[in-house]
Amino acid sequence: MAHDALTSVEVRRSRRRTATVSAYRDGERTIVAIPARFSRAQEREWVAKMLARLDDKERRRRPSDEELVARARELSVRYLDGRARPSSVRWSSNQGRRWGSCTLVDGSIRISTRVQGMPAWVLDYVLLHELAHLLHAGHGPDFWKLLDGYPRTDRARGFLEGVSFFQDGGSMGDPAQDD
C-alpha cells in the first residue's frame, strides 16, 4: 500500500516516548508515534522517513510477478541446485484453498494472493514447495527430501496451518489441499 494523497497520516506525540519513533497502518490511515519534544521540522522529517520505511516493507512483502520469478530462480539455485526451472511464476487470485500450484506440463507456478503480506520466509517456502513439485509431482519422501535444506520448512508449514485454521473458523480441513 504505497503512501499517496488518499492515505491520511496521524501523528501522535507522547511524553513517555523519549527517543523512538514508530509507524503502522490502520486501514487507510498511517499512525506515526513520535516523542512530544520533537520540533515540527523533526516531525516532518520522521514522518517522511517512516512512510518510506513502511512503503518499502510493504513492497518487499508484496513482490511483483517479475520479482517472484527472480526469487524463485534464487531459491532453485540455493536449495535445488538450479534444477527447478519454472517457465513462469505469478500471483493468482483464484486459489481459494491452495497457497500455490504448478502445472508440470508447462512448468508454470502460481502463488495465491493470500500469501501476499506474509513474512518473506513463508513466501520462500511456498515458492520452494512449488519448485520442488517441478521435480517431484507428489508429496512422497523424495519430494520432502528436496525441502530438507530450507531451514524454515517446519516453521512455515506451521504458520500456514495456523492461518488456515483461523480462516476456516477453527476447522483443520485436509492439509494436503493447502499446497
Rank of each mutant, 00 (worst) to 15 (best):
V9G: 01
E130N: 05
H139Y: 04
L51T: 00
E130L: 01
G173S: 08
M1Q: 14
W46H: 15
D56K: 15
D56Q: 14
V122F: 03
A176N: 10
K145S: 12
D154S: 15
E58P: 12
T20F: 02
D168M: 13
H133W: 06
F166Q: 13
G100E: 06
T18G: 09
H136K: 12
S8M: 01
S76E: 13
A176R: 15
E28W: 06
W121K: 11
Q177G: 10
A84F: 12
A48M: 06
A52S: 03
R60Q: 04
D142S: 15
W121N: 10
L104Y: 10
V69M: 14
Q177C: 09
P141C: 10
R29V: 04
S64N: 11
P119C: 03
E130C: 01
G140E: 03
L127A: 05
R25G: 10
L104S: 07
G107N: 09
G27D: 01
T113R: 01
W99E: 00
R83M: 11
M1T: 12
S39Q: 02
A23C: 12
D65C: 08
V21S: 05
E28K: 11
V89H: 07
E67P: 02
T18M: 11
Y150V: 00
S93H: 07
L147A: 06
S8R: 01
S92T: 07
G27H: 04
L127D: 00
D81G: 14
E66R: 13
R59L: 06
V163A: 06
L160D: 00
E66V: 14
R12F: 08
V69G: 07
H133P: 03
G100Y: 11
A23S: 09
L123F: 05
H3A: 04
A156F: 09
R73F: 09
V21H: 06
Q95P: 01
R157N: 04
T153F: 02
L131P: 01
V126E: 04
R29M: 09
M1S: 13
H139Q: 04
A84L: 14
D168G: 10
R85T: 15
R78K: 14
R16H: 13
L54V: 12
T7C: 10
A70F: 07
S164G: 13
Q167P: 10
F166P: 05
G117F: 00
A156C: 06
R78F: 11
F143G: 06
D4T: 07
Y150F: 03
H3F: 08
R78L: 14
L6R: 11
G149Y: 08
R152S: 03
E74D: 11
D174M: 03
M50E: 06
V47T: 06
W121M: 04
R15I: 15
P175E: 03
A120S: 14
S92M: 08
R53L: 08
L131S: 03
Q42T: 14
G82C: 12
G149V: 09
R37N: 05
T7F: 05
S39D: 01
L51W: 03
D106M: 15
S93I: 02
V11A: 02
